[in-house]
Design a protein around this nucleic acid. Sequence first.
DNA 1: CGCTTAATTGATCAGGGTCAATCGTGGTGG
DNA 2: CCACCACGATTGACCCTGATCAATTAAGCG
Lengths: 227, 227
Amino acid sequence: MTHLATSPTPPAASLKARTAWMAGLSTQEPLRTLGTVIEIGEGREIFAEGDDCDLFFKVVSGVVRTCKFLNDGRRQIEAFHVAGDVFGFELGEERLLCAEAVSDCTVISYRRRGVETLALNDQSVTRQLFQYAMQGLARAQEHSLLLGRRGAAEKVAAFLLGWAAHSPDRQVFSLAMSRQDIGDYLGLTIETVSRTLSQFERDGVIALPNARQVRLKNVEMLEDLAA
Amino acid sequence: MTHLATSPTPPAASLKARTAWMAGLSTQEPLRTLGTVIEIGEGREIFAEGDDCDLFFKVVSGVVRTCKFLNDGRRQIEAFHVAGDVFGFELGEERLLCAEAVSDCTVISYRRRGVETLALNDQSVTRQLFQYAMQGLARAQEHSLLLGRRGAAEKVAAFLLGWAAHSPDRQVFSLAMSRQDIGDYLGLTIETVSRTLSQFERDGVIALPNARQVRLKNVEMLEDLAA
DNA sequence: CGCTTAATTGATCAGGGTCAATCGTGGTGG
DNA sequence: CCACCACGATTGACCCTGATCAATTAAGCG
């Protein structure tokens, strides 16, 4: 399940090629004709909490975060979405989460109504939607598990391994997101994230050439930590 | 790894009556004929981590917990399932979670294969499965949010309100689960759960006639706490 | 080259975990 | 019927991890 390295701007032509990343649907891509390609600048909002759910999205390149702002001002990041991931896929009429571009990114938007109409005539569309829902479910459950973990070290280790798994190179990769993002995803403060990473580096588990670059030096120990 | 307590199978007659409890499907219930009703005793395992996913279940009565055991012996409860909820619905071949009866309960089991076959000919079945997946997704996201909350008071308050919402009487209800269960669901220890409840009682927010009975005295304050 | 923002590091504090004792309730057997 | 036991829940004392507050360093960027 390797995702392609993010390449320079993908014009429409590359879009077709990229549908191959989708899970379990090598032959058919009935949604292809419905999508609209959109470029989003780093930090820009894609949709907000409370918006109508008339669209959902698939990431082509870049990273998107879906999150919720709590009444005390804190932010909880529900997930990071990378190439191939679908987000903004909700049951109700109003969005419970908002979505923002972590990095510059390209996404495809789909009209929910249009897809639903399509689904009436095409079983494979319904099944595709089902796949998206189940993948989201699995992801959310995994995240619950992560948040339930006790130690900061456990959480950060699990996060690094999870992120490494998306990367083309599992040993060396760069984090698309800030320490604040990582903290909001793991339920920790930036300081704790930073300290934990520094400690990992002192222990020789990882190397940090700069704040965004990570090199895993001892994957086994990380896996032990992540439990 | 024993599952599926073979027990006095209720007759088909009772099954029909029970379909009325199901959410959102008043007119159609294409799955009705496929299910097998099963009685499970309190504390009994329904399926284990690593089992085949050839079945999924719907709760008729009682409460079921789905959970995961971590390598350090801790247990994380992913969800409590009450009448009408579907559980054991997973993508992969092997289960990632296990399910146990919190109280004596009655569930209906469905063969995944059978339902999939049915779905080929019947759009409504596919759409029903989609609904289950999306409900599970919404639930898992809500749980992530709950776990991400900072304070113990916030978590316990949110839990009480959530549980009250299922109950026939929103003011007075009884908890089906132990303190340990609550703790494992919220990522807290039994002591902290107990202390927090006691504190709520001292503050006049709730009353605890006995360990399992809860009476909400100040819902507004609970809602403030739950944020 | 200074300005701004992100990240790191340090010092202190508090929320919740841990360990341990006590209470309460329900079940069992004399 | 009551003494006894077992188990869950509660409460208390103490400690540790991670949050908070604050200062310093590093990295972009006009």
